[in-house]
Computed example of a mutant assay.
Amino acid sequence: EIAREELHCSPATLSVWKKANGIVIQKPYRLFTLAEWTELRNQKWTHFQIARHFGFECIDTYFYHARKIGIPRKRRREKIES
């Protein structure tokens, strides 16, 4: 909102400018490894518990990172026609 309304540029343009000028954005979450994820899943942790543990506020961001490191998203069950 600030980029568009006050700076009159896109958020992507602002992001590129910040990187070029050495402004580092601290993420509120910590990216995890496949080994860390596997260890927690073996302890019967749910996706929501793992996401919360690593500081992910948005579950979609958690699943995006999970897919990037090779964790397939479980598909929903298909409806069975009678």
Rank of each mutant, 00 (worst) to 15 (best):
F56T: 05
E36N: 06
I25V: 14
A3Q: 01
L40Y: 06
T13E: 12
F32Q: 02
Y62M: 03
H53N: 12
I69K: 11
A20H: 05
I25F: 14
L14G: 07
P72E: 14
W37Q: 03
T13Q: 11
E81N: 12
K79F: 14
S15K: 13
A51D: 04
S82I: 15
W45C: 01
C9S: 01
E6H: 12
R52V: 00
S15R: 15
F54M: 02
C9Q: 05
P28G: 06
S82R: 08
F32Y: 04
L34V: 00
T33C: 04
N21C: 13
K79Y: 13
P11I: 10
W45Q: 01
A35L: 07
V24E: 04
K68I: 04
R77K: 11
I50F: 03
I59A: 00
P11A: 10
T38Q: 12
E36F: 01
K18C: 11
E6Q: 14
F54H: 07
P28K: 10
H65E: 01
P72W: 10
Y64K: 15
H65F: 06
C9A: 08
N21M: 12
C58S: 15
E78R: 14
I2N: 07
E1H: 08
I2D: 01
R73M: 11
E57A: 10
K74P: 00
Y64D: 02
C9W: 02
A51H: 03
Y64P: 00
I2F: 15
D60C: 06
T46K: 00
R73D: 09
E5C: 14
K27E: 10
G22N: 13
R75E: 08
G70N: 09
K18S: 13
D60V: 06
L7F: 13
L34D: 03
